[in-house]
Design a binder for these strands. Structure first.
Length: 427
DNA sequence: CTATAACTCTCAA
DNA sequence: CTAACGTTGAGAGTTATAG
């Protein structure tokens, strides 16, 4: 039987910020989403103050002032770099690992059952804490869903206080007792809708769901939730995905820091996002045959005129060339743009993605091998890799972006940018 | 009618 | 000083469309 461990960084973004800013120790810290919009991470102190997840920052200014809550813009460069460091430590503990998200990894502990798994979990936590500086918890179980659940118990201190929980060694009476006291919404895969439906059926705790009849669950819900039930019972249905498959769609979208009104502002944004999407596309050696562009006004201001539209366009031939993709995207934008609206958000989605070796060439396309376009694109990617994103770009992307997202409270990129390092030299 | 495409819903971090 | 509410991707299931 497989054994899974889930390692999860505690309050990931908030912990990352505290790591480099000792002044923040013991202070309530929150990290904000793009545009400094909503709270997406909270330190333990902020959670203790009941700061809700996802609350718009401007709605909690009073609370923040009252308690001296520190709010920071998200610094994804920093979190991404720290995340990579954590993963490299975790890899020392297992040959098979799945990076599930920026702050979570599943570790296969198959064949480790001769060890004391709780000791092993503690060793993992301590090593990450010592080498990277970030705190985390470890949950161990017979399936990914069990490992998630165990991690939850560890984080809440419901199964000991050392940040590790191993369901395999827990007496079943104790487990039943615990699961009977945890809301079913905590289960991985149970979101808002399914929770409401389960509640109405009298399934309110994790224990209720674990003990439900899988075939009934399949009938009333779906095969997905049926698998969840089986996984809760220790029957692994979801495998470790060590190697992330290529993306089937690539999306770049963002809200604007301030409204964009004119076609030229929007086309600038669309070209910018398309360029970024094309970079992602090339980084997995793929080509796309279609794209979708969408533009939106501000949903939250129903007093203002509303307009949302999108346009999907299929190309005559697959491409990964930023120049072509930008032309297509701007063509799509022309089809939907309307004057007189303040636009708050736009996005570009590349679809019908295939590996570049697998694309059907047209009758007139050049012979296989590295094309002129490929060479130009790799040159662009090299230059931007060395000198920073946007160092070389298509002309549709301007140098100044008045609509760029607000990020007024960003900490320095301590680990990835020499010039942002706040070095204090000897006098 | 069937196979596929397109769209909707739900979830997750 | 004021206004201010995220992003990206997957999979399942349903509906529309093409042949």
């Amino acid at each position: 039987m497989p054994i899974f461990a889930l390692y999860d960084i505690n309050n990931c973004y908030a912990s990352a910020e505290k790591l480099f800013s000792p002044k923040l120790k013991d202070r309530p810290v929150v990290v904000l989403s793009s545009n400094d919009g909503c709270v997406v991470a909270r330190s333990a102190e902020a959670k203790a103050l009941k700061v809700p997840m996802g609350i718009p920052w401007f709605k909690m200014l009073d609370l923040a002032r009252q308690h001296g809550i520190v709010a920071l813009s998200s610094n994804y460069e920093l979190y991404g770099d720290l995340s990579n460091r954590v993963v490299s430590v975790l890899r020392q503990f297992t040959p098979h690992l799945e990076v599930y998200s920026i702050d979570e990894s599943f570790l296969s502990l198959d064949g480790f059952s001769h060890l004391d798994l709780e000791d092993y979990g503690r060793a993992i936590r301590e090593q990450v804490l010592q080498w990277v500086g970030l705190p985390g918890c470890v949950g161990i179980g017979l399936s990914k869903t069990q490992a998630k659940l165990a991690n939850f118990l560890a984080k809440k201190g419901l199964a000991g206080s050392d940040g590790v929980c191993n369901l395999l060694s827990m007496p079943s009476s104790l487990l039943d007792d615990l699961l009977g006291r945890i809301e079913v919404a905590e289960v991985w895969g149970v979101g808002r809708k399914i929770d409401a439906q389960l509640q109405s059926m009298g399934i309110t705790t994790v224990k209720d769901l674990r003990d439900a009849d899988p075939s009934m669950i399949r009938q009333r819900f779906s095969v997905v939730l049926e698998r969840t039930v089986r996984e809760l019972n220790g029957v692994s249905c979801l495998e470790l995905e060590e190697f992330a498959p290529d993306k089937k769609q690539i999306m770049v979208s963002r809200s604007f820091g301030q409204y964009a009104y004119s076609f030229s502002e929007l086309s600038d944004a669309v070209a910018t996002y398309t360029s970024r999407a094309a970079e992602k596309l090339r980084s997995q050696d793929s080509m796309a045959t279609a794209l979708l562009v969408f533009i939106e006004t501000n949903y939250f201001r129903q007093d203002e005129p509303q307009y949302h539209n999108s346009f999907r366009l299929t190309f005559p031939e697959a491409t990964s060339d930023t120049r072509e993709l930008v032309q297509y995207a701007l063509e799509a934008l022309r089809r939907i743009y309307r004057r007189g609206y303040g636009f708050k958000k736009c996005g570009v989605m590349l679809t019908e993605i295939r590996p570049k070796e697998a694309v059907q060439a047209s009758l007139f396309s050049p012979a296989p091998g590295e094309s002129r376009s490929d060479k130009i694109m790799s040159l662009m990617d090299d230059i931007n890799g060395k000198w920073g994103r946007g160092a070389i770009r298509v002309a549709a992307v301007s140098a100044e972006h008045p609509w760029a997202m607000r990020r007024e409270r960003k900490s320095p990129n301590y680990t990835t940018r020499w010039d942002e390092l706040p070095v204090v030299l000897a006098k």
